[in-house]
């Protein structure tokens, strides 16, 4: 049954997933198990996205389904959920840029691949990156940007991390619309990722996970 649930979620069967969620709650099943199956389903979605079978609409819609399932389950949870994570990553779109589509895909893919993601959102001041890295001790920072002025904002953010004495302990990846290896060099980041799968591969490599 749990395998079915994960597959139904991965196949984006809204009605069935919600009906099944309610049935499982009513039958007194451990709600953590439902969340666990949901996570498996989202893992399948992530894999299909990586394989080029799913695209942005499926990510958006599966995220919505997960939200609905979580809302149904939440009132029945007895303790907070803690899952083991591969590592922690701070991501955000750099100052002066308010694009977030790519950022949210990266967030989604890192999350379903087992990372704890602190998504700072858009137009993030360099100080906010510094503060969040200090607070979370995250070993990885992902800078997103769509517009050409993000080149400078990325450079300044990396410099700020350096000035705060954090640079030697962290890896910085960049990505987004106009980014490429030229910009990586310019911003003095460690790597450029051309898509969300590249971000996952880089992050796994950096934390030493397979």
């Amino acid at each position: 049954m749990s395998g079915d649930f994960a597959n139904l979620l991965a196949d984006l069967k809204e009605d069935e997933v919600l009906r099944l969620t309610e049935e499982r709650i009513e039958s007194g099943e451990d709600p953590l198990k439902i969340l666990d199956d949901s996570r498996k389903g989202m893992g399948i979605v992530g894999k299909r996205f990586a394989d080029g079978e799913y695209f942005l609409p499926e990510l958006v819609f599966s995220g919505e389904l997960l939200k609905q399932v979580t809302e149904l389950v939440k009132p029945h949870l007895k303790q907070a959920v803690e899952t083991k994570r591969l590592g922690t990553i701070v991501i955000g779109t750099v100052a002066g840029d308010i694009h977030d589509i790519g950022l949210n895909i990266v967030d989604f893919m890192l999350d379903v691949n087992g990372f704890k993601v602190h998504n700072l959102g858009v137009d993030v001041a360099k100080e906010k990156f510094v503060d969040k890295v200090k607070e979370t001790k995250a070993p990885i920072v992902g800078l997103s940007g769509f517009l050409t002025p993000a080149f400078d904002a990325m450079k300044e953010t990396v410099e700020a991390l350096d000035a705060a004495g954090l640079r030697k302990d962290i890896k910085v990846m960049i990505g987004g619309g106009q980014m490429d290896d030229e910009v990586r060099k310019y911003a003095k980041a460690d790597a450029f990722g051309k898509d969300a799968m590249a971000a996952v591969a880089l992050a796994k490599d950096w934390v030493g996970a397979k």
């Binding site: 984006l12 809204e14 942005l56 609409p57 958006v60 819609f61 919505e64």
Partner: peptide, 11 residues
């Protein structure tokens, strides 16, 4: 919006 229209493709 991007999110809205992508939901509409399904719903």
């Amino acid at each position: 919006g991007t999110r809205g229209i992508m939901m509409d493709m399904f719903q």
